[in-house]
Amino acid sequence: MINPVHLSDAAAYLGAGLCMGLGALGSAVGEGKTAANTAESMARQPGASEDLLKTMLVGQAVAESASIFSLVVAVLLIFGERAGTGVEAMSLFTAGLCMGTGALGPGYGSGLAAKAATLSVGRNPHSHTRVQTTMLVGQAVAQTPAVFALMISFLLIFRQSPLGWGLETLAATLAAGVSVGVGAIGPAIGSGYAASAAVEGVAKNPTHSTTLIRTMLLGQAICQSTAIYALLVSLILLYMV
């Protein structure tokens, strides 16, 4: 018979690995594309290299935040206290899975916006302030699904485990993490795509930046609705089942 504390330990370590492994993927690809585009733009417009570098770093910093959330959750999973009661093992594993999958989309989506911004500054260096503002607004919306995933992960990690454990509670716990984690991928990539198109539009047509930002936010709000459904289902599974 396995000691329940050991089972919790094993689940937490497995979850931490998944969390950081998956969580690093999206941000890394997005930031790499940003850097590649910055190099291309610099070759085309060496005079704007200062602005390009600044845009790249700001954009990458925001894209990185999703994987920083993953790192925080992974560290909490590795060094946390374990009681070995109830569904603790499943809660800890699910917390890692949730944050890992939840960081994939936001990292990549924010990276798309940053990539478009560096391309746009290269094309139209005079518009760099407006481009950066649009990029940051768009990226902020693209990051929200990662915040939902972080919230559910924390709720799972610091959960008062019910004493008894049944198949039902185990399934509800796993389902809560899958719902919000996997559900974060689409809305974040979609919002990132919308942000990248808006950023390119602002560089092409700076006089209409207000209309573009408004349309981008409207479109992103609709994109985010499915992430909010996923959060709702996840909270219902955690607290109402």
Binding site: V182, I185, G186, C223, A227, A230, S234, L237
Partner: peptide, 14 residues
């Protein structure tokens, strides 16, 4: 339920 909502959110979002 979790799988339905999680995977179901990918398509509409993108």
């Amino acid at each position: 339920a979790g799988i339905a909502m999680g995977f179901g959110a990918i398509g509409p979002g993108i």
